[in-house]
Design a protein around this nucleic acid. Structure first.
Lengths: 185, 185, 185, 185
DNA sequence: GATGAATGAGACTTCATTCAT
DNA sequence: TATGAATGAAGTCTCATTCAT
C-alpha cells in the first residue's frame, strides 16, 4: 500500500489514531468498530485503510507508537542524579508515574483490552518496576536507605500506584512512601 | 421461555458455565463465540439458549455467580479471631488471597476482558482491601502494630499481590509483609 | 468447520452448487456475488458458509466435482470396442462430446471465467484430445484408416467441435469427419 | 468532461491503454483494479478518468480499438491474388493468423475474461473463418482444390489454430493442412 | 431436552470514482 | 495536466440467535 505522505497526511494519521484510541478505550478493542473510529474522526471507514492495513494494525500502532516506554525513559533520565533525599525523589517519581498513567488512561484501557496484548502490558510493568528498583538500590548502596528487598519494594510501589490509578481510585503517594520508609519521614 | 428444571438441568447449567468460563478466559469474551462455548461443553449452540437468554447473560452470570465475593467472605470469617502474631496472620491472609486469585485465573481474565466488568472488578478490589484494612486496624487498636495509615497499607498489600498474580509473576508474600512491618519480623 | 451431514444436507449442497453454477455462468465468477448465488438458491448468504468455506471454495468444488472428466471417461469406455466403421464411431464420439459440452454450457462458461482456471480447462482439452487420438490410432493400426498424424487430427477434431459449441455455432460433425476422411464416406 | 487534446495527450492515452491491456490480461478484467492499471502506467488513478469515462470504457476501447479486425483485413488484402499453390498459401495464411493470435495473447485473454466480450470474440472468429473460407472457395472454383465443404473446412482450420494457441500448445500448421488436403502434398 | 439448519444484522475490507488543489 | 485524499457502495464473511423437528 502506498501510504499518504506529507504534512497533512501525518496530521490525519495522528487524528485517526486519536480517534481509535478514544473508541478502543471506551468500548474495548473488539467492541469498537472501524465505523466507530471513522465516525469519531469524522471520516468514512474506507479512509482508515489508506493509513493502516487493518483494524488490527491500528491497535498495534497505538500500542507501539503511543506506548509508555518512551515517556518512562524520560522519567528515568530526568531523575537520575537527583540530590534530594531519597523519599522526596521517590515521591516525585511515583507521582510522575501516576500522572503518566492518568494522562494515558485511555491507552491503559487499550492495553488491558487488546486481545493478546499481555506482552506489552508486562513490558510496561517490567520497565516501571525496574526504574523504581534501580533507584532504591542506588540509595541503599549510598547508605541513605536501610538495606531491604528493593525488588519487592519496587514491585509493591509500582503495583499500588498502577492498580489504583487504573481503578480510578488514585493512591496518596506520600502516604505510600511513608509506609515503606517511615524512618525517613 | 421455559427453563429446564431438575437435577440434570442444574448440572448442565454448571457445565455450560464451566465451558463459558474456559472459553471466555482463553479467547476473551468477544473473541470466544457461542459456538466455541457450545463445542467446549460438547453440545450444540442452540442448547445454550435454553439455559441463558444470551451470550451477554452468560457473562453476567459468570461474573455474579462465580464472583470472588463468596470466597472472600469465607476468608474474612475464617481468620477473624486469630490469635497468632499479626504478621503471621497477615501473611496467611495474603497467601490465601493470592491462591484465590490463582485458582480463579480464568475468572480474572474474564473480569479484565469483559467490557462491562469494571464494576465487579472494583467491587472485588474494594472488598479485598477492606478485609485487609479491617484486620490491620484491629491489630493497631490492639497495640500490636504501630499506628499507621491502615487504608493505604491495605490497598498497597492488595495491589501488590493482585497485579503480580495477574501478570503471572506472583510476589513473595512474606517479603512483602516484611517490607511494611520490618519491626515485627 | 462442521459441515452439515445427512440426506437433506446433501440435497441442499447440490442445490447451492446448482445456483452457483447458474450464476457464475451467467455473470462470470467475479461478476456474480455470493448474494446472487444465495438469492438464486432462495437462501441467505450466510448459509453458503455452512456448506463451503468461501466463494472461492465453491468455484473449486464446481470445477472438480462437476468437471467433465468423469463423463469423458464414460465416453471412452462406452465406445471402446465398437465394431462399426471408424467414421461412424468417430461421428458418434464427436456428437457425444458435442452434446456433453452443450449439456454443460454453464460449466464451460465457468471454466472460461474462473480466474486461474487455465489448468482445469487444459485438462479437459487434453483428455478429450487423447480420447479421440487413441481411437484414431487404433483404427489406423487396424488398417481401417489411412496412416496419418493422428495427434494433430485429434486436436483438430476436438477444437472444431469445442470452439464452435462454445460460440453457440455448433458444427456439423458428419461434415467435419467427411472432411478429414473423405475416402471412408 | 474536457478530454485532453494534442500530441502528448494521444501518447498518454495509448500508454494508458497499454497498461490496461497488460493488467487486464494478467489479472483478468475484474481482478485488475484501476489502481493496478494506473501504477502500471506510472500515473495516479485519477488521471485515468480524464482519458476514459470508466474502467468499463477502457475495456470497451481496448476491445474495439485494439481488436483483431484491422490486422485481419490486412491479411485478407495481402494474400488476395497469390499465385502459389493453394496449400502453400493456406499454410502462410494460417501461420500469419497464428502469429496474430500469439502477438495478441494479452488481448485474447481480455476477450476471454471480459464478461461482455462474447460478441467481439464471435466477430473475430467469424471474420477469420470467412477469410479462410473465401480463399478455399476461390481455389475450388479455380479447380485447384477438390470440391468440399469449404465453410466447415474453414471453421475447422480456424478452430484448430485458435484454441491451441489460446491454450499455449500451438499446432503444426503444415501438418494440419496436410491432414485436410493430403492429395496436394 | 436437544439439535443444527437457517437467518439477519453487522463487521471488516476493497475499490471505482470524484474533486479540490 | 496531474495528483491523491476522500467517499460511498458494495462485497465477503462471521456470528448471536431462532425454531422446526
Amino acid at each position: 500500500m502506498v501510504r499518504p505522505r506529507g504534512e497533512q497526511a501525518a496530521w490525519r494519521r495522528e487524528q485517526l489514531l486519536d480517534a481509535a484510541l478514544r473508541m478502543f478505550a471506551a468500548k474495548g478493542v473488539d467492541g469498537a468498530t472501524v465505523k466507530d473510529v471513522a465516525q469519531a474522526a469524522g471520516v468514512t471507514p474506507g479512509l482508515l485503510y489508506r493509513y493502516f492495513d487493518s483494524k488490527e494494525a491500528m491497535v498495534e500502532t497505538l500500542l507501539s507508537e503511543r506506548g509508555f516506554l518512551p515517556r518512562l525513559r524520560e522519567l528515568r533520565e530526568r531523575d537520575h542524579d537527583d540530590t534530594r533525599p531519597a523519599t522526596e525523589v521517590l515521591i516525585g517519581l511515583l507521582e510522575a508515574f501516576d500522572r503518566l498513567l492518568a494522562d494515558n488512561a485511555e491507552l491503559m484501557a487499550v492495553f488491558f483490552s487488546a486481545a493478546q496484548a499481555r506482552a506489552p502490558l508486562a513490558g510496561l510493568v517490567d520497565q516501571g518496576q525496574r526504574l523504581i528498583g534501580d533507584f532504591l538500590a542506588e540509595r541503599v548502596a549510598a547508605g541513605e536507605l536501610r538495606p531491604h528487598d528493593t525488588a519487592t519494594a519496587a514491585r509493591t510501589l509500582f503495583a499500588a500506584v498502577a492498580i489504583n490509578r487504573r481503578l480510578g481510585t488514585p493512591i496518596d503517594v506520600a502516604a505510600l512512601v511513608g509506609l515503606l520508609f517511615p524512618e525517613q519521614g
